[in-house]
Simulated scan of single mutants.
Amino acid sequence: MTYTYQYPHPAVTTDIVIFSVRENALQLLLIKRGGEPYKGSWALPGGFVKLDESVDACAKRELAEEAGLQDVYLEQLYTFGKVDRDPRERVISVAYYTLTPSEHLLPEAGTDAAEVAWFPISELPELAFDHTEIINVARKRLAAKMEYSTIGLQFMAEEFTLSQLQIVYEQATGKELDKRNFRKWILSLDLIKETGKKYAAGAHRPAMLYSIKDRDSVEIIR
């Protein structure tokens, strides 16, 4: 049986917020749009869902096409559906977010993007569509999870200092943390171990380098 619906169908898109820590700052991966609308403006990676694919598949495809990234774990964030959010037509967007060490990523502009680059969360350019709103929601979700979970370890490289890990939590939550209490808490979780190596930066005393005992045991962003 063929069904005919009386209601017009809105388009569906996906948008992806990728958090990482670079140069001791929480940063986002953005693409410069290669086409209209907002040609030349910075935006989140994303695009329209095809009729024969799921929204999850679309998010992964768009991330590969626009930023050259594959095998990135994505978590659904929220659905954005203001009537005028896209000047082309009625568009509803399913947003995703993820957090990852930036050295695991080698982004490059794909077929749908003119450029791809990292931006500190505190120095974002003017963005296309409602992507500023999407980023704000993603950051609030991230900050809330960082308050009670170990997901901050997902940002870390193979080896890191406790000071670098503390910076991750401070950047994500926007709160200054007591050094002694933070170290006591993170070590009590028994998720990281000393590597036996030290990291020297400037005139500061060398700091012990740590690594994650078992990355599979680290809480994912859910």
Rank of each mutant, 00 (worst) to 15 (best):
Y148F: 07
A43L: 01
Y5D: 10
V218I: 15
G68K: 11
P37S: 08
A201L: 12
V94Q: 14
Q164D: 07
I31W: 00
R222N: 13
V137M: 08
P125I: 02
I220T: 12
E36M: 08
D56W: 09
E53F: 10
D86L: 02
Q6W: 02
V116E: 05
D56Y: 11
C58H: 03
L189P: 01
S54V: 05
T2H: 12
K179F: 03
A138M: 09
F155S: 12
G68F: 10
V55E: 14
Q27S: 15
A128C: 06
Y73K: 13
R141Q: 13
G40F: 08
R85N: 15
Y199T: 01
Q6T: 13
D216T: 11
Y78K: 06
A117W: 00
I151F: 02
E170R: 04
Y38E: 06
L106V: 10
V94G: 00
E115H: 13
K50H: 12
I135K: 00
E176V: 12
E66A: 11
Q27P: 00
P87K: 05
V12H: 13
E126R: 11
L30N: 06
P87C: 05
L51H: 14
T98Y: 02
A64I: 00
S41T: 03
Q76W: 02
I134N: 01
L127R: 07
E62Q: 14
L106T: 14
L69T: 06
A157P: 02
I31Q: 01
I212L: 07
P10T: 10
A207Y: 01
P8Y: 03
D190Y: 05
D112A: 12
Q76K: 15
N136E: 15
S122L: 05
K140W: 02
R85G: 10
A157G: 08
M146C: 13
S163I: 03
T111I: 14
P120W: 09
F48W: 04
I31A: 09
E75H: 13
L209Q: 11
R139W: 05
E36A: 14
A25M: 07
T161P: 05
E23D: 15
Q6I: 10
Y148A: 07
G174K: 09
L99S: 09
I31L: 11
V21Q: 14
R61G: 07
D130R: 09
V12P: 00
S122V: 03
R180H: 08
A113H: 02
Q166R: 15
L153T: 09
D190N: 15
E53L: 10
W42K: 03
D178G: 10
S54P: 07
D214Y: 04
Y169P: 00
D130A: 08
D214V: 05
T161I: 04
K179P: 00
P125V: 04
I92E: 10
V17N: 06
K82I: 02
A172W: 01
L187F: 03
E159D: 04
K60I: 03
Q70R: 12
P37W: 07
L142H: 04
E133L: 09
E126C: 00
V83Q: 08
R222W: 11
S20P: 01
D216G: 15
E36C: 01
V17A: 07
F19G: 03
L187S: 03
I186Q: 03
V55D: 10
P125Y: 08
S41A: 10
I151E: 01
S20C: 11
D71N: 15
M208A: 14
N24P: 00
T98F: 02
K145Y: 09
L106C: 08
A57L: 10
T150V: 11
L153K: 08
H131W: 01
